[in-house]
């Protein structure tokens, strides 16, 4: 009987990571799209760095940070007797770091392309900054935010390198689909590897198909206004 735990674990890891990535991505993208300050481009470059670095380098950095002697790792161990390395939480952290740039990039583009007059119009009508964000900026940027959310989820599902470095491969504990594929091939279980390849290709393909369909539909919706 097929063990579906890699699928469930992958969905759990990608889901939790996407939740955090979405919140932080939207927060920083909105903040940075409206403010100019010294060092902004340096911070933005740091945000985007995981996109261009090899995942093993990201994983190495996380291992240094979250390892027993690492800055965060030793603090977690001392205060909470908790270790991230070789746990599924490690996979979530790796997934957050590698998918954050995709969310940030999509959200920043969405907020920057917003017509500032919409927000200004809301302000002149007495709306608080939070209300302007929630009822105007967020709603109008939603297509871009959703694109970032879906891409981050897909990236989280496919994350391998950094996850392997931080969470390792422990069957039943940290074996996400990409891990299951790699170790199935390594141990000559081609049938098992093929099964998981088909599953992850189907998930990725349907995600992109849906995103394209949804984006087109959304562009059509307000196209007269944006013309």
């Amino acid at each position: 009987m097929t063990d579906y735990s890699p699928l469930l674990l992958s969905l759990k890891v990608a889901g939790i990571s996407t939740f955090f990535v979405f919140i932080f991505g939207v927060f920083f993208a909105h903040l940075f799209s409206r403010k100019k300050f010294f060092g902004k481009s340096i911070i933005e470059s740091l945000f985007m760095l995981p996109l261009v670095l090899p995942p093993t380098v990201v994983g190495f950095g996380l291992l240094i940070l979250f390892g027993k002697n690492g800055f965060i790792g030793s603090w977690l161990l001392n205060w909470f007797d908790f270790q991230v390395v070789f746990t599924w939480i490690g996979a979530v952290i790796a997934s957050i770091v590698v998918s954050f740039p995709l969310m940030y990039q999509s959200a920043a583009a969405a907020f920057e392309s917003l017509d500032a007059r919409m927000e200004n119009a809301a302000r002149t009508m007495g709306a608080s900054n939070w209300r302007v964000f929630w009822t105007i900026s967020f709603r109008l940027a939603w297509p871009g935010l959703l694109a970032g959310l879906v891409l981050s989820f897909a990236r989280g599902l496919g994350e391998f390198g950094a996850t392997l470095m931080l969470a390792g491969y422990i069957p039943g504990k940290t074996d996400t689909i990409p891990m299951a594929i790699y170790f199935a091939v390594e141990s000559g279980q081609m049938e098992k590897a093929t099964f998981w390849v088909v599953i992850i290709v189907a998930l990725g393909f349907s995600t992109i198909m849906w995103l394209n369909w949804w984006s087109r539909r959304n562009i059509e919706r307000y196209k007269n206004d944006n013309a």
């Binding site: 017509d115 007059r117 200004n120 119009a121 302000r123 009508m125 007495g126 709603r139 109008l140 944006n226």
Partner: peptide, 29 residues
């Protein structure tokens, strides 16, 4: 702050909120 000035501002090209109905646009403030 703009919010406390009690000013009506009609922008060039109107800046109506495209995701709200006319009724919701008018009732917004």
């Amino acid at each position: 702050p703009t919010q406390q000035r009690n000013i009506g501002y009609l922008f060039q090209d109107y800046a109506l909120f495209p995701h709200m109905t006319v009724e919701k646009n008018i009732a917004y403030g």
